[in-house]
């Protein structure tokens, strides 16, 4: 799958701030295609998990109300420079992607 995740993690004063952007259409399933009048099938991310050195630091459940190309930012205690951060998402159609990065 094409790269869908951009992630930046920065450790400062014992707290790591993670910011992530995911490329995804986030269709609610409630919109109509204006030309054909057909409903656009729902296609949105349901689950986002982020791990720091293999330990889960956030687990999100999302609905169709999260914006297109979702943005997520959160903080956790601990985390050092060059630690590994892994983020994975999965949508309602069973597609998903994951990416690992280093804390800066």
């Amino acid at each position: 799958m094409a790269k869908t995740i951009k992630i930046r993690a920065k450790a400062k004063n014992g707290v790591t701030t993670v910011k992530a952007l995911i490329t995804h259409p986030m269709e609610t399933g409630l919109r109509k295609n204006k030309k054909t009048g057909e409903m656009i099938p729902a296609n949105f991310i349901q689950e986002v998990v982020c791990k720091h050195n293999g330990k889960e630091v956030i687990n999100c459940e999302w609905g169709g109300a999260v914006s297109k190309n979702p943005y997520l930012a959160f903080k956790f205690k601990g985390g050092n420079k060059d630690d590994t951060i892994e983020l994975a998402w999965k949508d309602n159609q069973g597609n998903g992607d994951s990416l690992s990065a280093k804390i800066r």
């Binding site: 330990k55 956030i58 999100c60 999302w62 169709g64």
Partner: peptide, 18 residues
Amino acid sequence: AVFHLPKGSLPDVSTRVK
């Protein structure tokens, strides 16, 4: 959206909604 925060994660989350 629901954000589950394990111990050690700070209660400070941001996102964008419709």
